[in-house]
Amino acid sequence: MTFQIHALPRETFAPLFGLDETALATRRAVWRIAESSPGWPCRVSLADADKGERLLLVNHEHLGGATPYRASHAVFVRETAPQARPEPGDVPDVIGRRLISVRAFDGDWMMVGADVVEGGAVAATLETMLADRAVAEVHLHIARPGCYLARATRA
């Protein structure tokens, strides 16, 4: 068994790219310029923005539904982000170079497991968590700021 990491879909954010600052503000979004690289991880491309690159900073609900774990958080999306589609079993560098909070959820969106691991241990952690048939999917968060990064399922 192996895992598949999923980026957020570009089409979720595409309608925001042409909006002015006032319209973005009503959608809890603002433009930011990457001040360094790495450090500004795009959730669509699963790559860090280059220094000076423009990103949308927007609140995104990554765990909806009727659950106590319903959650949203700020995410960055590069204006020119290509859609990431990692191969099964691959961990993008944007994950591999960070401390990651790994959260396993069952089909009712109840948390059934969690850990904090260095990026190099994400693959083994996903394999272990997803081997448990009670786990429907696993969410990956950047541990220190707590921001949602991506999700993983069985491949």
Rank of each mutant, 00 (worst) to 15 (best):
L63E: 08
I95L: 14
L63V: 02
R70G: 11
L63P: 02
G89F: 04
A81F: 03
D93A: 15
P88G: 07
P86G: 10
A71L: 07
T80F: 01
S101Q: 13
R85E: 14
G64I: 08
T80M: 01
A66G: 09
T67R: 07
A66D: 13
P92W: 06
R85G: 04
A74K: 11
P68K: 15
P68A: 11
Q83E: 12
P68W: 08
R98M: 09
V94T: 12
Q83C: 08
D90F: 10
S101E: 14
L99E: 15
I95F: 06
P68N: 02
T80Y: 00
A71C: 01
V75Y: 03
H73R: 08
Q83F: 02
R85I: 06
L99A: 11
Y69L: 05
F76T: 00
F76W: 02
R78E: 08
Y69F: 14
P86F: 07
G65M: 03
L99W: 13
P88E: 00
A84Q: 09
G89W: 03
P68Q: 11
V91K: 01
V77A: 01
V94R: 09
V94H: 06
Q83R: 08
R98G: 02
V77G: 00
Q83W: 07
S72W: 11
G64W: 08
F76D: 05
A71V: 03
D93N: 09
A71D: 01
G64N: 04
R78W: 00
P92K: 09
R78G: 14
P68I: 13
P92F: 04
T67M: 05
D90K: 11
T67F: 10
G96F: 08
P68Y: 10
D90R: 13
T67V: 08
A66E: 15
V91A: 00
H73I: 03
A84R: 06
A84F: 07
I95P: 00
V102K: 03
H73F: 10
L63F: 10
S101F: 05
R97N: 10
P82N: 07
R97C: 09
A84H: 11
R97T: 12
S101G: 14
G89P: 11
T80E: 11
V75L: 02
